[in-house]
Nucleic acid binder design. Structure first.
Lengths: 156, 156
DNA sequence: ACTTTATTGTTCAGCATTGAACATTTTTAT
DNA sequence: ATAAAAATGTTCAATGCTGAACAATAAAGT
């Protein structure tokens, strides 16, 4: 509190980050509504898109990409499997690993969902010129890098 | 899919937004670890900060600021009240409303938490120059505005 | 005045997420 | 070869968040 700013919200970086967090929260809520017709929520969408992109990925790798715990995948994937959207097949060499892939209907659903998702992002960022988007992306890259390297130790 | 890009992840705005979402997720996790010593989590922190800033706010107003449902506040606030961090007093004129305020120990805890939070944000955004932060903030303002005006109707 | 509508907060069932403990299998150390 | 350590997926209790239904109060319409 003996910083150059009296309160956090007077701090420029703090204010910037609050904006990022709010935008994320609102986007997530809008996305949830946008894909509700397909009877999936954003966690499922994230899974489906990553399976679309990385066919044969393991649950562990998927969890890492999504920045969630393994147990989360153990809860969600069986649901998608029961709905016939994905398949889980044991790896040939390593008997611990389950390899994931989309079924035909899973791929179909994923493409519909991606179209909706892309459309929403497109509409939402339409006011933001492409070079500004690129600047934002660069800033986020830096932030992501710092956060990932500081993960285990949180204090100086 | 008959857009200019074949896949969403080849789309510049899409990629930008993925970066924003990842950064947010990582920041939230880092923040959760950073304030774990104070025995609160990010939802509590958000509440405390808003009570610090807007003393006497109602539960409804608080929920609106945090972009969450009223029921969420009805679950979390009694916890903080039991811990002696906040007080809920009925409004004098409108008997429906509960007005919220921090107790002394609530204010103390909030100041500690804010110091940690500001420090983490400071460290994380240290690589990002202030003018770049400002550009990000502007972009987020636009995005927030669009998302808030599109809230009720999600389709064209 | 009286009825209808809206607002505020609560409760509840449902689901996502986590972290810890566990079993199985693989890898590494000795 | 054998033991120790690590990796993968599962289960479970705890918690956050939501939306719907509800009670109490206030505001608006008649």
């Amino acid at each position: 509190m003996n910083e150059n700013q009296a309160f956090p919200w007077d701090h420029p970086r703090f204010r910037s980050w609050i904006g990022v967090a709010r935008a994320c929260q609102l986007m997530q809520q809008a996305m949830t509504r946008a894909i509700a017709d397909l009877d999936i929520k954003t966690p499922h969408l994230d899974i489906l898109i990553n399976l679309y992109r990385f066919d044969g990925i393991s649950q562990q790798e998927l969890a890492r990409k999504l920045l969630v715990g393994r147990s989360n995948m153990s809860m969600l994937l069986p649901q998608l499997e029961k709905r016939g959207l994905i398949e889980r097949r044991p790896d040939g060499k390593d008997k611990r690993i389950l390899r994931l892939s989309l079924t035909k209907s899973g791929r179909d659903l994923t493409m519909q969902a991606m179209a909706i998702q892309t459309g929403l992002i497109e509409r939402t960022l339409s006011q933001t010129p492409e070079d500004r988007c690129l600047q934002v992306a660069e800033a986020m890259e830096d932030i992501i890098h710092i956060l990932q390297t500081m993960e285990p130790a949180e204090e100086a």
